[in-house]
Design a binder for these strands. Structure first.
Length: 466
RNA sequence: GGUCCCAUCGUCUAGCGGUUCAGGACACCGGCCUCUCACGCCGGUAACAGGGGUUCAAAUCCCCUUGGGAUCACCA
């Protein structure tokens, strides 16, 4: 068996979207799983719509997902000589011909066909004219008029197309650029791509491509058409479904490992398992386990999976991904231990890194602001003495671990006959400014004695002043 | 409209003829835990689109209907 060679071949006409990312992921996973090669190719033969900005956006997204490639990136726009050489071969062999019909004439043909209820298609006017190349001629493929073409798809099974459905499609445009079907096949052949994994919206192109493989006398690759990713309205994912750019999910606070886990599980399964590390995905991925039906992209489930990955990650790992969100709020910390401690307390209560950053406000804001409602309700006269006592006891503490703190609180509760519930909320408000936060002992441990005392002083001052 | 693909809980899916009055996950609804919010734990509601076959036996195989999707360019 020749080693597996897969490729991802996006057209740079916009950012990398969810469907494209999944196609890239499946190709990459399959190559990594089999120990094969994964090739990146940029299909920029549409000069009008391709932009370098889009190319950069695609690179950026793949980099975030940590999908790396072994060869490329190749640019089709730089391979015109190769396509032209193949065009010459095809014309010489009688598989293709020059055609000077104008777009207007073609449109007229289609109109006429539609009027008679026939299929709108090129009528073969130039098919036998043996025209030579010229600046106003396209090159068309001479499609067989009889017979049928069979696709043996790894995920969809056998699909048969009658060849009379096909017309003589264009291989090279008047501007000298190859069309998609032709360039893709020439590249896949010349790059030895033996496994083509792509969205099933390409199924209709496949018979044309198979015919081209035959004309080029090239061995057929394995085809695997994976089902589409749909939006919640059951149509193909597009801009109107909200965030569909991969990097938008990064900016919403998703972890790349959670995102690829989610993408992989959309259409592929391994028993009942939901959570996969990157290594597990590579180990377990297989084309046989890819389903046939389209799936709806569910952002709620994505977030839930992300929460699982956040919980499973180490604070050290999360720190790198979280920092941009902190910095966006003007928060910095050179104290790694402090940062990691803070993250650890937030892990079980954050579905996204954005949520985590938002909840981390009291760790990184130098001066916390007391929420007025919270302060009104919990920083009252009757907790003034307990808080003063607490402040003194804490100040005298030689160590500031959770156990030490608990001991102080037990004493406090006994001395003032208070339940923990009665004193915890005031302390929470004093330390964080709000009524919602991680456990107060964890917070205090992370914050450290100095900050805790300062915040208690501030709260005491607030009570005295009211 | 032609062609092609698809069809299990709201969603993602397990199920590859019998051990399933269909299992898991997310979401939802109860309860427990508890210093708040979460996490966690326990429990619950919820699906084989419909109709014909084949078979001793069908969610699983075949056909039809219905529904959804994709595609019909000198875009990719």
């Amino acid at each position: 068996m020749a080693p597996v060679r897969t490729r991802f071949a996006p057209s740079p006409t916009g950012y990398l979207h969810v469907g494209g990312a999944r196609t890239a992921l499946f190709n990459w996973l399959y190559a990594r799983h089999t120990g094969g090669k994964f090739i990146l190719r940029i299909e920029d033969t549409d000069a009008a719509r391709s932009t370098d900005q889009s190319v950069q956006a695609i690179f950026e997204a793949l980099k975030w997902l940590d999908i790396d490639w072994d060869e490329g990136p190749f640019y089709q726009s730089q391979r015109l000589d190769i396509y032209n050489a193949h065009i010459d071969r095809l014309v010489a062999a009688g598989h293709a011909y020059h055609c000077t019909c104008t777009p207007e004439q073609i449109e007229a043909m289609r109109e006429k066909a539609r009027a008679t209820g026939a299929k709108p298609r090129y009528d073969g006017t130039c098919r036998e004219k043996k025209l030579g190349p010229s600046s106003d001629a396209v090159v068309r493929f001479k499609s067989p008029t009889m017979g049928s073409t069979l696709i043996e798809d790894v995920v969809k099974g056998h699909i048969v197309f009658s060849n009379d459905e096909l017309d003589d499609f264009v291989l090279r445009r008047t501007d000298g650029m190859p069309t998609y079907n032709f360039a893709a096949v020439v590249d896949d052949v010349s790059m030895d791509i033996n496994t083509i994994i792509r969205g099933d919206d390409h199924i209709m192109n496949t018979p044309k491509q198979i015919l081209l493989y035959h004309a080029l006398e090239a061995p057929l690759p394995i085809f695997a058409h994976v089902p589409m990713v749909l939006g919640n309205d059951r149509t193909r994912m597009s801009k109107r479904h909200g965030a569909t750019s991969v990097t938008a999910y990064r900016d919403m606070g998703l972890l790349p490992e959670a995102f690829i886990n989610f993408l992989a599980r959309l259409g592929w399964s391994h028993g009942d398992q939901e959570f996969f590390t990157r290594a597990e995905l590579i180990e377990k991925f297989s084309l046989q386990r890819v389903g046939k039906s389209a799936g709806i992209f569910d952002p709620v489930k994505l977030n839930a999976l992300n929460a699982d990955h956040i919980q499973a990650a180490t604070p050290e790992h999360l720190a790198g991904h979280l920092k941009p969100f902190l910095e966006a709020r003007g928060w910095h910390s050179d104290d790694e231990a402090f940062l990691h401690g803070a993250i650890a307390t937030l892990q079980p209560r954050s579905k996204t890194l954005l949520e985590m950053a938002l909840q981390a406000h009291f760790y990184f804001s130098e001066e916390i602001t007391l929420d007025e409602q919270a302060a009104q309700k919990f920083l009252t006269q009757n907790v003034l003495e307990p808080l003063r006592y607490l402040r003194e006891q804490l100040a005298a503490l030689p160590a500031f671990g959770e156990k030490d703190l608990e001991t102080v609180f037990v004493q406090l509760m006994e001395k003032f006959s208070l339940k923990l519930g009665k004193i915890a909320q005031p302390v929470r408000v004093a330390l964080t400014g709000t009524t919602v936060s991680p456990g107060i002992f964890e917070i205090m441990t992370v914050l450290g004695k100095e900050r805790v005392l300062a915040r208690l002083d501030k709260a005491i001052g607030y009570i005295v002043a009211r």
